[in-house]
Design a protein around this nucleic acid. Structure first.
Lengths: 105, 105
DNA sequence: CCGCATCCTTTAGGATACTG
DNA sequence: CAGTATCCTAAAGGATGCGG
């Protein structure tokens, strides 16, 4: 059995997906909180990333009927698995990359 | 320490990189052999993929001074590590994906 | 606050033809 | 055989402004 790596339904490789996984690692976050954790992303692109991840079942989107509006995002079980994959890749990188490719957190 | 996942010098996510890693898994291959193993890729794109992987230290390119020309590609130690990462991701997928997302080899 | 509408730029990727 | 050279398309990503 082989992995069909060229037909992934998940947009794990999209520019901001990994950032969102990390941003939601600590739990439920508001849209603005996410933006603050990922300063370089624009609202439009973050929205489209989140929408895609929602379609793929990686995050849930909860809209509150308040004014001003409030929307919260949270990883699904599947999203947490994807975060686990990301961690695995980072572990791999720590073992196999030169130190210049890593950054202290 | 955290992985700088947004600044990867490697083009692992590029469309054909994983295919090339697989194609070279069995050892040294000629350009034409690679094309045969990856029928859907065009010469131009395969060339640019290989050139990028060469710059990144994942493959070596050996040109023979013959006529007709012969060029062989081979994974470096680093390329073999990347192949290991790919295998890890496939293992992860087998454990975490539904069966419809997998394909028998 | 959240995010949509609009417009724009960049780039990966591809089709086709040609060459040492 | 192993590529270049050209031209092209689609889509990701971004900038800015507006609106409930």
């Amino acid at each position: 059995m082989e992995c069909r790596h060229d037909a992934l339904p998940y947009r794990v490789g999209d520019k901001w997906t990994a950032h969102v996984l990390r941003g939601l690692a600590g739990g439920r976050r508001r849209f603005t909180e996410l933006r603050a954790e990922i300063p370089a992303v624009t609202a439009k692109v973050l929205t489209s990333t989140l929408r895609a991840m929602e379609r793929e079942g990686a995050v849930t989107r909860t809209e509150f009927d308040e004014n001003p509006p409030r929307v919260e995002y949270e990883l699904t079980e599947h999203g947490r698995k994807l975060l686990g994959l990301l961690d695995m890749c980072c572990d791999w990188a720590r073992k196999n990359w030169a130190r210049e490719n890593l950054v202290e957190a």
